[in-house]
Simulated scan of single mutants.
Amino acid sequence: MKICFVVNSVETETAGTTVYLMHEAFKRKHQVYIMGVGDFNYNNNQELTVHCKTLGKNAKSETPKEYINSLKSKKAKSEKISVKDLDVLFIRNNPTEEEAGRTWAEHSGIAFGRLVQQEGVLVLNDAFALSNAFIDKLYFEELPSSIKPASLITRKKEDILQFFEDHKKKMILKPLEGSGGRGVYLIDKNEKNLNQIIETLTEKGYIIAQEFLPAVKDGDVRVLLLNGKVMEKDGHFGIIRRVSGEGEFRSNISQGASPNSTEYTEEMKKIVEITAPKLIRDGLFFVGLDIVKDKLIEINVLSPGGMDSFPYLGLPNFSDQVIEAIERKLEYKKNYGDKISNRELATMD
């Protein structure tokens, strides 16, 4: 197959989950391309092309890190190809990691992804579903309240202060749009700058006030779902516990948290069982759930990560399961054509 991965920028991409998936596809002798969100072209004849990089058929690369370094080097070939020549477009750029001055890039991957999808190319996750869930914290609020902490989305200070009072003067404040632990505050009765924090956050948009979960001291768990199911191989599951550093309540790896192995508990299974039907219906193929004990605190539908931590925890490399799932989807597409929609195909086992 010919598969193209969309990232924020080829130059800044590191050996994370996306590159692990690319490297697995490369090892399986597929033609793999990488492009940034700024590499789409759409002319007035409605021909959609992309500028991308790839390695030749005889190229060798033993590790994901070696692979991405080769793609950034002179070994890589730069090509301009019609999207109609692709079998799969995998949208993996993370809008919340865009640098200042690149607001144009935040929606670009999904917006062009919709056009690519209309050309009959398999797009993962489904581009229209991604549009719907672009503000993933708002998409998260569509899930049943039984698996979520109490929360409030608002820009009104008086409502946030009331939420604070109602929850024993302890809460989490964070922007509605964003990830990676940036702009997230733990507020308690000793906080002297609450008004200033609220003003700073509301300048950027809506705020989420969320119930504080004491169990967060033990970190959170990232659960990776494929076709609405937890990845499983040789008795191991695609989950990691992220433990915060000393004096830090955020469990993001980017904020210094450490990855650890963990069990797949009954509480996690219940959350997955409740969440999965919606993800499957919406065409969300590859998703990350962040769980604290018996509560789902976030859902990542745009570019879930964590697979690069698996080798260090003695877990299998689940990349092969992801690529095999895509291979099966293309076989279904070959047999049934447009009788199965992209959204249905995206989460079909």
Results as ranks from 00 to 15, higher is better:
Pro175Gln: 03
Asp282His: 04
Val6Leu: 10
Ser261Leu: 00
Asn252Trp: 08
Leu71Thr: 14
Ala346Phe: 13
Met231Lys: 10
Ala127Glu: 09
Lys2Leu: 00
Lys329Ile: 09
Gln162Tyr: 01
Asp166Val: 00
Met307His: 06
Gly306Asp: 14
Lys229Leu: 08
Leu143Met: 15
Ile297Val: 15
Asn252Asp: 05
Tyr336Met: 14
Leu302Glu: 11
Lys53Trp: 08
Ser108Leu: 12
Ser244Leu: 00
Arg242Asp: 07
Thr200Arg: 08
Leu213Trp: 06
Thr154Phe: 06
Tyr139Ala: 10
His51Phe: 06
Lys72Met: 06
Ile207Gln: 02
Val216Cys: 01
Asp338Asn: 15
Glu79Ala: 05
Leu173Met: 04
Leu225Gly: 10
Ile207Met: 02
Asp136Trp: 01
Gly205Pro: 10
Phe26Gly: 02
Ile153Gln: 14
Asp159Thr: 03
Glu62Cys: 00
Glu79Asn: 06
Lys170Cys: 10
Pro95Gly: 05
Lys84Asn: 11
Gly16Tyr: 06
Gly36Pro: 14
Glu263Tyr: 11
Lys65Phe: 12
Ser61Lys: 02
His23Ala: 01
Asp220Val: 01
Asn58His: 13
Tyr206Trp: 04
Phe26Thr: 03
Leu315Ala: 06
Leu115Val: 12
Glu344Cys: 00
Gly113Ser: 05
His236Glu: 15
Leu122His: 09
Ala325Pro: 14
Asp39Thr: 06
Phe128Val: 14
Pro277Lys: 00
Val7Cys: 10
Lys60Glu: 15
Ala76Gly: 04
Asp320Met: 03
Thr265Asp: 07
Val50Arg: 04
Ala76Tyr: 11
Met35Asp: 10
Phe26Cys: 05
Leu302Gly: 01
Asp308Arg: 03
Asp126Gly: 07
Arg241Val: 02
Lys53Val: 11
Asp39Lys: 00
Val32Thr: 07
Lys65Val: 07
Lys204Asn: 11
Ser151Cys: 04
Gly120Thr: 06
Tyr33Thr: 03
Lys204Phe: 03
Arg250Phe: 05
Gly183Leu: 03
Gly219Glu: 13
Leu224Asn: 13
Asp234Asn: 15
Phe237Arg: 13
Ile110Thr: 15
Ser261Asn: 12
Asp290Pro: 15
Gly178Phe: 10
Glu267Cys: 00
Val243Gln: 12
Gly183Val: 06
Phe26Lys: 02
Ser70Tyr: 14
Asp188Asn: 15
Pro311Gln: 04
Ile299Leu: 05
Arg343Gly: 11
Leu194Gln: 06
Val287Arg: 07
Arg92His: 12
Ser261His: 09
Phe285Cys: 13
Gly120Ile: 07
Leu330Ile: 15
Gln46Trp: 04
Leu143Asn: 13
Phe5Cys: 03
Leu48Tyr: 05
Glu191Arg: 13
Asp234Thr: 08
Ile299His: 08
Asn260Phe: 12
Tyr206Met: 05
Arg182Ala: 00
Ser108Thr: 15
Gln321His: 14
Val322His: 12
Phe212Met: 03
Lys233Thr: 09
Ala111Arg: 09
Gln46Lys: 11
Gly305Cys: 14
Ile160Val: 10
Thr63Ile: 02
Leu213Asn: 10
Ala111Asp: 13
Lys75Phe: 04
Val19Glu: 01
Val19Ala: 01
Gly113Ala: 01
Phe285Trp: 15
Ile297Cys: 07
Gln117Met: 14
Asp282Arg: 01
Thr17Asp: 08
Leu152His: 12
Val121His: 12
Glu62Pro: 01
Val301Lys: 05
Ser146Cys: 02
Phe163Asp: 09
Met35Gln: 07
Ser179Gly: 14
Ile34Asp: 12
Thr262Gly: 02
Glu141Val: 05
Asn193Thr: 14
Asp290Gln: 12
